[in-house]
Structure formats: C-alpha cells, structure tokens
Design a protein around this nucleic acid. Structure first.
Lengths: 200, 200
DNA sequence: ATGATCATGTAAACTGTTACATGATTGT
DNA sequence: ACAATCATGTAACAGTTTACATGATCAT
C-alpha cells in the first residue's frame, strides 16, 4: 500500500524476518532475539517495541486487538514480505563490522611478547569454549524439518567455524610472535606462510 | 595525573593505540583509520576530533602548539600509555558483533532454495574477492621490522582466514540446501557433518 | 588562478543501551 | 501472599554517520 522502504539499518528487517515465519508479540520477538539472534543481531525490548510501532504505521505489519495482558500480536503483511525480500536481494550487505578483539590485537605489541602471547593463548581457549557452546546449542535445539530451521543451522555452523578459525589463528599468532622474538634480530622478516592464496 | 578511566567503548583506546607508536594530528589519525583500521574499527574525522579533545582534557594525550594549517600534534602521555595497557589487559572483549550478512542468511529461506543458492554463490565469490584484496594489501604494505608491523600483519591474516572461512562456508551452505531440497521429503534430517567438534 | 590536499571543527539525525516505570496473570 | 513471568512502554544517555562549514597551503 505505502511503499515506505525502510532504510539501511537492519532491525526492522530482522523483525519482518521473524514475523515471516509466524505472528508474534513484541515480548515474544524480544525472546527470539535472545535465543536465536543474540550472536548475530542483538536487540532489546526497548528498541523492539518502537520499531514494531513504526513498521505498523508503515503498513508492513498489522497489530491484533489487545489480548490478555495488553498483549498485541503482530502479523506480517504482503507489503512486509515484499520489503523483506527486497532487502534480502537488493540491499548490499556491509560486512564491515566492529571487532574490538581485533582492535586489541592490533595494539598488543605495547604489552611486550610475553603479554601478547598470554593474551592470544587466552583467546584460543576462549574461542574453543565458544565453539563448544555452539556445538552444544546445536544439540540442544529441537530442530524441525522447516526451511527456517535449516537456515538457522547454517548460521550456527558459521559460528562454529568462526570459533575454530579464531582458535587456530590465535595459536598461529603465538607461533609468529615467538618466531619474531628470536628471528627479528637475525632476519627481521614477517611471516610468508600467512599469505598463501586462499584455496578456491 | 588524573585517573579518569575511559569507559567501555573503544574509540579513545584506538586513538591511544595509534599514538603509542608515534605522535600524530587528528587528520593523520583519520587517515590511519581508513588505511589500517577500516575493517576493524572504522571512524570518521568528525568523531576523532572531539575524542582527541576529550583525551586531552583527561590528560591521556597532550597537544602541541598549532602548526602550519592550524595543525595540532597529539602525543600520548604516561597516563595515556597506562590507560591503554589497562584496557588491553583488564577490559573484557565483547566479541558480540553485528553480522548483517548472517542476519540475511537467517531469513534466506523466504527466497526459496534457488534464490538462497544464488545468494550463497555470490557470497562465496565475494568472500574470495575480499580475501584476494587482503592478500594484495599484505604485498603492497611496506612492512618494517617493528613489533607494530608484526601485529598489523597478524590482524590482516585474520581477515584473510575469515574470508577463506566465509567462502568455504557459503559453498557448504549451497550443498546443504541442495541436499535438503531432495532429502527433506525422504529423511527430513539436518546435516550431521556440520557439527563435528572443532579440532583442538 | 585554480584545484587538490591539508586541516579542523560543529550540528543534526539515527541507532542502540541502560535505567525507569507500570501493571496483569500464573503458579506455589 | 508472594514471586516469577508476561507484557508494554518511555527517557536519558552514548556512540556513529552524514552533512554543513571554514580556511590555509601547495603544485601546476
């Protein structure tokens, strides 16, 4: 009806995406964010409620009458589905994220080799923990046969692979620092092996 | 002198980290952000100038007299170095980042299998491109023997590994979707192989 | 002279977090 | 009765982006 076209930010689309599966209240959506999107796109209820109100005035969702405890159930409209699909297809993803752990790594030289090595070893242990948690989460979730479940599993798998990469990279960094520690005065070279072109 | 203790956010610490290597002006820092931190912690000059002013009043940096074109050079103080190291060691990193590409993946089922496969194939190609860019960047940078250069290379290596992981994962996702396409009606099972525990 | 680059800032708009605020219903 | 959970919102603050605004210096 009204082609308002939500701009670049993703929270409204995340809400549309969740509502594409089934209608839900703001409260339920907040829970879904905590359960399934906590590591992807966190959002608090204080952000969700106003966003739903705005989606409603834009005509991308409709709210039911107030239920038991003032509960309002939102249902996605055809316009909402169209906007969701437009976002999925047209909107370029800006995979420019803020990595505070990489920022730290960048400045780790100020701690000296020992401090940096300790840091990366902690990082590796932490990454393995997180990977285990993802694996456990995969086991705990009651997956159904839906398409949505498949894609949720695919996302979770990236989490697992990311953790594995981070652990391996951290240990690799330790090796590099130790090599640099002794080799610096001899050759002063940076690692070659780091930049073998990625396998196609 | 004054132990103001910058709070959780990282921009001031990024500035302190860059200034730990050598003094610089706001303009130069803005360029450094674009050159070396664009994929880690982007920042615009409009954010940098006020942040420097605040770091200055907190006593973590000192500004020189105004130079040629109103240029002000900032130098890190001992307090600034202490704050930087405190942040590196004490402050827990919240590797909870927002991944708009993963958010997209989560809702890709709404496009149907063909649309999703096309998306992941584009993703894989894009990830390979980005990986190549990182590799090229590694070659183009004029690395010196400094510790800072080693850590910059370590960070860049994570970028390369992340790209490689993303490309592999995207192609894996295509396989899963194709398997699900036919197998759903037969077994309805989700991938097992996805969750082999990560190698220690 | 003119355009590129150096150089610094402010203001408005938007996104997100934390804290505040309220009240209904359900289970024990 | 009391605690937990359901359920919705607002307000203040912090951080980021985009746009506005200005002017000096350098190379051609």
């Amino acid at each position: 009806m009204c082609g308002d076209r939500v701009n670049t930010m993703s929270l409204p689309h995340a809400l549309l995406g969740l509502l594409a599966e089934q209608p839900a209240s703001g409260y339920e959506l907040a829970k879904l964010f905590d359960l399934s999107l906590a590591n992807v796109w966190p959002a608090k209820h204080s952000q969700i409620y106003p966003a739903l109100a705005k989606l409603s005035t834009s005509g991308f969702v409709v709210a039911s009458e107030e239920g038991p405890r003032g509960r309002k159930e939102y249902t996605i409209t055809d316009d909402g589905r169209a906007e969701l699909e437009r976002w999925l297809v047209e909107e370029p993803s800006e995979h420019a994220v803020r990595h505070d752990d990489l920022l730290r790594a960048f400045f780790l030289w100020t701690l000296g080799a020992d401090g940096a090595v300790a840091h990366f070893e902690r990082e590796a242990a932490d990454a393995n923990d997180v990977g285990q948690q993802f694996t456990q989460l995969y086991r705990d979730v009651d997956w159904d046969d839906s398409d949505a479940a498949l894609y949720a599993a695919i996302v979770l798998e990236q989490g697992r692979r990311w953790s594995a990469m981070r652990a391996e990279w951290s240990l690799w960094a330790v090796e590099q620092i130790n090599a640099h520690r002794t080799a610096k005065t001899l050759t002063g070279r940076l690692p070659d092996s780091a930049f073998d072109p990625p396998a196609e």
